[in-house]
Design a protein around this nucleic acid. Structure first.
Length: 217
DNA sequence: TACCAGGAGAAAA
DNA sequence: TTTTCTCATGGT
């Protein structure tokens, strides 16, 4: 997987969908909450949960820390897994309160600290690193894995860290590019094909555009 | 009705 | 160590 291959696909996605202006949230704290709430969940459901939090005056670190877990769970109910996510949100809040100097940590140190928080795995940590802390970390999600494996550029069962390093080594550190690229992959997956996420036809379209060989005709 | 969604942690094998 | 199970609402 080369830089030119990745940039070629990026340009096709950008030409097709335009700038995405991610993350769809206001400020780093809302980005971090959204990253937890969207785990295995459609963003439309997360928006309902975020609206509930704002209406209750809970889009605030200290306010959340003073809220009972069971009460928080009811506010974020539309996001699904609400009991699990309430515990994870409060774990994140306690972590943020206990570490006031996070912005001073280097990328690796900050990533390790985030991964040590209950409920924050690789993808959620990288969402937070890229979209809240603006660190050059490429986010790998199910869409990324599915799209690029169908394009034949990565192994479908490759590990998360293997894929992340492959993208980062090929592209080089570039926060604006990582930001837009991940957002475009999600946009493409959600909207390019309405029958099922990233169907073969969509992948073939990208592949055909990319290689100038049309297999669809 | 059944399946899926911008995962992660715990339990089981 | 690897695989499987659990968590749950809302849209299609």
């Amino acid at each position: 997987m080369t830089r030119n291959e990745l940039l070629g696909i990026y340009r096709k996605l950008y030409a097709s969908h335009g700038p995405q202006h991610w993350w769809p949230g206001d400020g780093p704290f809302e980005v971090m909450l959204g990253a937890v709430l969207t785990q295995n969940t459609a963003w439309s459901n997360v928006e309902r949960a975020i609206d509930n939090l704002k209406a209750a005056g809970l889009m605030d670190l200290q306010a959340l820390l003073q809220t009972a877990e069971t009460q928080l769970a009811q506010h974020i109910r539309p996001a699904g897994y609400f009991n699990v996510k309430a515990r994870r949100v409060l774990s994140l809040c306690r972590f943020l309160t206990a570490h006031a100097n996070l912005a001073e940590l280097n990328d690796h140190e900050l990533r390790e600290r985030l991964l040590a928080v209950h409920g924050i795995g690789p993808e959620t940590a990288d969402d937070i690193l890229l979209y809240a802390f603006e660190r050059p970390v490429f986010v790998i999600d199910a869409y990324t894995r599915r799209l690029f494996s169908r394009l034949g550029l990565v192994e479908p069962d490759a590990g998360y860290e293997t894929l992340r390093r492959a993208f980062e080594q090929a592209l080089g550190p570039d926060v604006p590019l990582y930001n837009e690229y991940h957002a475009l992959i999600v946009r493409h997956a959600k909207e390019a094909c309405r029958t099922k996420p990233i169907c073969d036809a969509c992948c073939l379209k990208i592949l055909c555009d990319y290689s100038n060989l049309c297999f669809m005709q």
